[in-house]
Design a protein around this nucleic acid. Sequence first.
DNA 1: TACCAAATCTGACTTAAGTCAAGGAAATCC
DNA 2: GGATTTCCTTGACTTAAGTCAGATTTGGTA
Lengths: 231, 231
Amino acid sequence: MKTAELKSNQTLRDIPLFSELSIEQLRKISSFSKLKSFEKHDRIFNENDFYLGFYILLKGSLKVFKISSQGKESVVHLVRPLTAFADIPLFEGGNYPVSAEALEESLALFIPKEKFLELICKEPEISLKMLAGFAKRLKSLINQLEDISSKEVSNRLAKYLIKEIKSAGTDKLPEPFVKLTIPKSTIASYLGTITETLSRAFKKLQDEGIIRVNGKKIFVNDMKRLKELAK
Amino acid sequence: MKTAELKSNQTLRDIPLFSELSIEQLRKISSFSKLKSFEKHDRIFNENDFYLGFYILLKGSLKVFKISSQGKESVVHLVRPLTAFADIPLFEGGNYPVSAEALEESLALFIPKEKFLELICKEPEISLKMLAGFAKRLKSLINQLEDISSKEVSNRLAKYLIKEIKSAGTDKLPEPFVKLTIPKSTIASYLGTITETLSRAFKKLQDEGIIRVNGKKIFVNDMKRLKELAK
DNA sequence: TACCAAATCTGACTTAAGTCAAGGAAATCC
DNA sequence: GGATTTCCTTGACTTAAGTCAGATTTGGTA
């Protein structure tokens, strides 16, 4: 990890959390936050590390995960740019409750706890934004929980693929597709399963003619049936 | 469901969310909130109902759940007194994302969305409390998710029993115990399984001499091993 | 290009948990 | 207090998914 310079306040403006702040306030945030860059496989923090502050991912992607007592990894969150992570302990106290690792070369803004809490007290608008962000994640965790306990792996995979295709923007093409940018082992863990089972789920969807797998590229032949499986 | 009168502002003071407000502010909250009482099995709201506001449970207990497309119930949250529920859409918009049903005779305070959002803008202290509440639930959902995808049913049951025993306050007795107040079918769904499997998990713990089951009363013979299973 | 290591896939097997069907126990209601 | 319904348990069976071991592919690098 190395520390870099924040190029402009425009970058800060793009972060939903800060979108409505004045130039003055953005300047203040720049003054106490730090840009940090990470190589693939770099650990950003470990579960139980002393909590110093939270991050906003600017570039790249990373996984947030826990290691169970039997040593099994559970991916809790896949983080994409402009999203905050490790913000939970800001308000709850305690150490980092999870670990985070870069999945590719990444850039994140580190915001120290104390300074941010001072800011939030002066600028209550931010706490409403924060509440909206938490609310969204609560909803998404509730859905993940429901999915994992009521659907089988191929259904969860279908849902994951649809989301990925949507965010890739190819969902309106005659043959929608995605290139998977994160390792299948991470996807497996995110879907609450293991690589072997995920591999079989891919095969199942392919054998049924719903998708076509070409290495890391997944093409959808039958979006209707994929959506049917996902719900 | 019938509407009752709020007895005093002291009740409001006991709610963590409102613990630091002035008498004046509490009076204001009383003025726009409504006490509602529910019989066992009463539905408080249904998934997709138009969102009107959130609740704080004062007495009794209830389950918050979703019904999957195959008709299976997933209990997401078991609500105990002085806890807020259905507060997520306050900040995210949309309808109720879950359903809620009373597990016994219960009493809840209903707080309408618009009035509450006005209050929160004037009183930013409340949003910090709210953030703390959300943070706690995010952590707990992350743990639930990890448990459900990495532990087997008897381990999850062990963890559940320990929590119940702690909140019953009998954990320091020579033979800690709890009386289960909610139906086993609800516990099963909360633990991400079905009644038959839960029943077998109880039996397994009993056969191993860890607990003793007497109808709805569970006695712990070997707390050490129960804790071992739970982690 | 050829090599190596990591990631992924495949097959054979095991196992935890779900399904179905039936019986027993508890709670609830006249 | 007996009947009825709801809840819980048990047994036999099926199945989805995990385990283990080995083969294959891929990507990065010399």
